[in-house]
């Protein structure tokens, strides 16, 4: 893995974030900066990445670890290029999310929390994402995929594969 170091552009973004808070309150920037770091360094937060963020914000490493381990969106181990986060809470469950999760498991040949051998897909089940009226649904990157059906899941998988091939 490349050295953990933000680009100039990202460093400017960090400065912009810190400027949102009163002087001396740069700890408030921690969660936004961890999001930036996760995006920049392979979709997860390694110990090196967290230490780097600590240095950047003049925090003790433990202050970063305790936050990174609290919030479910921070991945503490590597994940596939495409992370399928399928909601399984009540409203999605009554709309058929169990069947969608089973379908994805069979289709990709992985269990929940696992990554395909080619490193492309990780399947995760998550709790309510606030899309209950458009269930079943999953988060994929920055966006939601809603009204899922097996056919729609097939399309999404094909779309990811072709994106991966194009890169």
């Amino acid at each position: 893995m490349a050295e953990v170091q933000f680009s100039e552009e990202k460093l400017n973004k960090v400065k912009e974030i810190i400027a949102r808070y009163p002087a001396g309150k740069q700890k408030s920037a921690l969660i936004p900066v961890l999001h930036l770091a996760q995006e920049a360094f392979g979709g997860w937060l390694s110990a090196e990445t967290m230490d780097y963020v600590a240095t950047l914000l003049q925090l003790e490493p433990i202050e970063v670890y305790e936050v990174a381990t609290f919030y479910s969106m921070f991945n503490l181990k590597p994940v596939g290029t495409y992370l399928f986060e399928v909601c399984q809470t009540g409203p999605c469950m009554v709309s058929g999310s169990d069947q969608i999760i089973d379908y994805i498991k069979n289709k990709l040949g992985i269990g929940v929390g696992e990554t395909t051998a080619d490193g492309l897909f990780t399947l995760k089940t998550v709790e309510c994402l606030g899309a209950c009226g458009y269930a079943p649904m999953m988060q994929l990157g920055k966006h939601y995929r809603e009204h899922l059906t097996p056919a729609k899941v097939d399309e999404i998988i094909a779309e990811c594969r072709s994106k991966a091939n194009a890169n």
Binding site: R20, S28, I31, P32, Y71, M73, E127
Partner: peptide, 10 residues
């Protein structure tokens, strides 16, 4: 006005 994103915690 500033926007701050959380990171997954009800």
């Amino acid at each position: 006005i500033y926007v701050q994103r959380g990171a997954g915690a009800y």
